[in-house]
């Protein structure tokens, strides 16, 4: 006899159900994995101590914000972490216009008790803002995923932005993701997952050490089809501003063409991708070798 491996029918929970802990449990076991729900059950100040690790002090320093108080220079960071919720949202908004976010980070316990990074947004407050989030009728576009503001998107593209970007980035993705690793280790957690909104974000997360739970094959296929003779390369026919013949050369160019729906030429859509980062480990996935951003 020996032991073979058979496919399991159900996905197991990766850590125990996140729940409020007693003080004895808090003090008892530094290896016990904490969920967002567990931390949210703490008193406000206690949970703020935890969540403070998520925001890079350099980012705050650059804007003149006190990294302990989370305010200064007219800015105020908001922490949304209600008790009984498995979600935390930290945001820094334009003091003049609260709907204009400079920094957003949202984490959530997921169905297998893992942690998802729902949203990460890093906009340079001093960069020009493009109106891609409202269409010409004033309806929310949800970063161009539901409807699109083509005129603003084209302006954003020409200014060097990637799809779904409202402003140029702060260039601090590395720092934020580093802090995220630190936060996860503090919580005795070993990984974080996310669903990349665009091809450009998938590439950025890949460069920061993420691997693919789903869609690695699709990313390889995209790269292949953008090579000479490929169906995506052929579809870069200049029929829209987002499908210029040179778009295959860069991450951003590809991302805009994909945002414009070019994947229909290979019978695919940009959906169902899922990525994972293991704390302290760089996966070294490479779906666009020698890429130019």
């Amino acid at each position: 006899m020996f032991r073979a491996l058979r496919l399991k029918q159900e996905s197991p929970k990766v850590v125990p159900e996140p729940k409020p802990l007693t003080i004895q449990e808090w003090l008892g076991d530094a290896q016990f994995p904490l969920g967002i729900r567990t931390i949210n059950a703490l008193p406000y100040d206690a949970k703020q101590r935890f969540y403070r690790t998520l925001v890079p002090p350099e980012l705050l320093g650059r804007l003149g914000i006190n990294p302990i108080l989370w305010r200064g220079n007219g800015y105020q960071l908001e922490l949304y972490a209600p008790e009984d919720s498995g979600k935390v949202n930290i945001s820094l908004n334009n003091p003049e216009d609260p709907s204009d976010a400079y920094f957003v980070l949202e984490l959530q316990d997921n169905s297998t008790n893992g942690i998802d990074l729902n949203l990460i947004l890093l906009n340079d407050p001093f960069a020009e803002k493009f109106g891609i989030e409202l269409d010409e009728q004033g309806t929310k576009t949800h970063w161009g995923t539901i409807t699109r503001n083509l005129r603003e998107e084209e302006r954003a593209m020409r200014a060097g932005l990637a799809p779904a970007q409202v402003r140029a980035g702060m260039g601090m993705a590395r720092e934020v993701l580093h802090q995220l690793d630190v936060f996860l280790a503090l919580c005795a957690r070993q990984a974080v997952s996310l669903e990349p909104l665009t091809y450009a974000s998938a590439w950025i997360f890949e460069r920061r050490g993420f691997a693919y739970v789903r869609g690695h094959k699709l990313m390889d296929q995209i790269h292949r089809e953008f090579q000479p003779g490929g169906a995506l390369r052929a579809a870069l026919d200049g029929s829209t501003p987002f499908r210029s013949p040179e778009a295959w050369q860069t991450v951003r160019g590809r991302a805009w063409a994909i945002h414009d729906g070019i994947l229909e030429h290979i019978g695919e859509r940009w959906r169902d991708l899922r990525m994972i980062k293991v704390v302290g480990k760089h996966a070294a996935a490479q779906t666009f070798p020698d890429a130019k951003y």
Binding site: M1, F2, R3, L5, R6, L7, K8, A211, V213
Partner: peptide
């Protein structure tokens, strides 16, 4: 070897 697909489970079987 790490993957992120469906998990397997060990079963006793004949060699």
């Amino acid at each position: 070897l790490t993957d992120f697909g469906h998990p397997f489970e060990p079963v006793e079987t004949e060699a």
